[in-house]
Nucleic acid binder design. Structure first.
Lengths: 358, 358
DNA sequence: TTGATCTGCACAAACGATTGTGCAAAAAAA
DNA sequence: TTTTTTTGCACAATCGTTTGTGCAGATCAA
């Protein structure tokens, strides 16, 4: 260290210490030395001094001048949901590797909040946004894109829209899951869905019904229940289903949270998986294999979705390429564990349940 | 809308549209109208126009001028770990409520990365940092504090240090857990620890040994094993423990991930919880109650830790109060479920295990 | 020796906000 | 009416960068 006493706060200080102009310092630090014919001697001096005085350019000033912040916004409905958390991780790591930081926002699955967050990120001048939308309306997102700030959607998507999205092939995933149940002998298969009307939910329902139809099985609308991706819905829906005169022998839960609710309800009824009821879930979780009955599930390629989202967004930002590919669907994988068995006789299930709680 | 055709990008545009100076617009928008004697008429005009043209001040320019970004840095070892994810959520929500955004960083439990992230956040001029440190060394953190950027540590802490921290009382939590096991009749209790030498781990080990001692039980050092908070460590350590001549009747896992590894190993051995082995974990998880044997665990007050971290940090930022209280320890809670039973005879456990895999 | 070309660097204007200070016109006081 | 005070707003500097352009001195060709 040459002068540990001198405080170098900005580029001006550094230039002063070296006795040269800020222009030159800036150019060297930005790797434009040769472009502007800065002599190697000067260039080295600058580099060494920067290291020596531990100088880092002020990103804020840089952002103002360059009109880009090298910051990405990430809006997610619930960061404590492991499904989103692991995608957030990949997104953060991959973005940083490419020189971008991310501003994390939790929309609490609320449309109004999502809208406000889009505004917030806009005023913070992020270079782009990765958004796992609440998914009922997309006008505000489209408007954001119009304003010149690129947006990439993950998980849910806008059917027929102009905004690029990366998502799993939910139709295929659901179809695989239900066919697995059918091939195990199930005929009365319920599904507990999430938010009605949003793309991924519709796709899963379609996968479910198409699987049934393609095997010549009737589609009983009353077996399609639920209205939310949360645990409570899984619980309440399962209770309702099991109280039917003709309860299903298998349940297809549309999310890991719903599955948790199913488990709780089944547990209360004293019903066992897969002896009494078979269950298939969506979204693999590390703990699925340690459940009383390890859960068979449809795994979404989370890492891949997250990684591609970053790549597509950065491509949009850097190359202004208006996203030749506007939507990408990735294949999910059915992970077979031990929550699916052959259907039990209805009577035996009822007796196993004992008295049905109301 | 009066003039939806005119694009208002900055405060100058807005001032031009209104035919007044940017000074006045700025003052009105910052609520300093009366302070600078701006007439109500003008003030209203500005407010309406701002709404009308959907104008939001450029945070970057604002940050440069004000030398504060209203942004907090959050560094976490692994955002996909539900323990950290749920704290991240609380931190984001609470920060936003108070007008701050957060830049999320994942240190991958790596010291070098943590150091670099501290630098990065410094050059991004965050107003403060909440850090769940890797925890082996604290020099770089202290240095960051010296540079004038406030830091609050969560989870792990620096013993005898000057940096404020919020953490659970890990000693008490561990002690409660072990006493619970002792009162169930266990005498050979193993613990699988995390990263050796870091504060929370040491505290837990001390809680473990003190609980043993206070009940007149011997402390067998060979029953204190493990060296990492991950799942692999839980798995390997359990295998080692159960292969002893005199395997423990109970295992205390120092994290939810370690517990997962324990479960996997026990499962492979064909050992049942709590019939063959009792298990207590740290960090409650939503799925703990749905395991084959619902897990008894020490729950850390995550929301409280996260919330207080934000409050303490913001206090540090706003009031420059040098943190009268430098450290806060919150009481954990023992959640009793069904993973602890009376110890089985060693012989029966061995037979239950069948052939021991190597 | 003279003009042309090349080297190596610096001046100063942005980027979009905030703010101390100044200065007219209007209102009040004398 | 004149002076003082108040009202209402604008000028211009500033935050820390980046960058188009300019301008000496050195080098080269003729």
């Amino acid at each position: 260290m040459r002068k540990p006493d001198v405080k170098v706060k900005n580029i001006k200080d550094l230039a002063a210490v070296l006795g040269i102009s800020v222009t030159t310092v800036s150019r060297v630090l930005n790797g434009k030395a040769s472009l502007y014919r800065i002599s190697p001697a000067t260039s080295d001096k600058v580099m060494n001094a920067a290291r020596e005085f531990n100088y880092f350019p002020n990103s804020i000033a840089r952002g103002l001048r360059l009109e880009k912040t090298e910051t990405l916004g990430l809006i997610i409905p619930d960061i404590s949901n492991p499904f989103f958390a692991s995608m957030a991780r990949t997104i953060e790591l991959e973005s940083r590797r490419q020189g971008y930081s991310i501003i994390l926002c939790d929309s609490m699955d609320d449309m109004q909040t999502e809208k406000e967050l889009l505004q917030l990120l806009g005023s913070r001048r992020v270079d782009g946004i990765i958004l796992a939308p609440v998914g009922k309306k997309f006008d505000h997102i489209r408007e954001c894109g119009k304003k010149g700030i690129p947006v990439v959607i993950i998980d849910r998507y806008m059917p027929g829209g102009s905004i690029p999205f990366i998502t799993a092939d939910n139709y295929q995933g659901a179809r695989d899951a239900v066919e697995h149940l059918i091939s195990a002998g199930h005929r009365t298969i319920a599904c507990i869905q999430g938010l009605k009307g949003i793309s991924i939910n519709t796709d899963r329902v379609n996968g479910y019904t198409d699987a049934l139809k393609s095997h010549g099985l009737p589609v009983d609308e009353s077996l399609i229940t639920g209205d939310d991706f949360g645990i409570e819905n899984g619980y309440a829906s399962t209770r309702m289903l099991m109280n039917r005169d003709n309860p299903p022998t298998a349940i297809f839960a549309f999310s890991n949270l719903i599955a948790l609710g199913v488990l709780r309800a089944l547990n209360e009824y004293g019903l066992h998986i897969p002896a009494d009821v078979s269950v298939v879930s969506f979204d693999d979780q590390p703990w699925f294999e340690f459940l009383a009955s390890p859960m068979t599930t449809v795994e979404q390629p989370r890492e891949k979705i997250a990684g591609m989202a970053v790549d597509v967004l950065l491509d949009l930002i850097k190359n202004k390429s208006s996203g030749a590919k506007t939507g990408i669907m990735l294949k999910p994988a059915l992970i077979i564990r031990n929550s699916v068995g052959r259907p039990a006789a209805a009577s035996s299930r009822v007796s196993a349940a004992g008295t049905k709680p109301v």
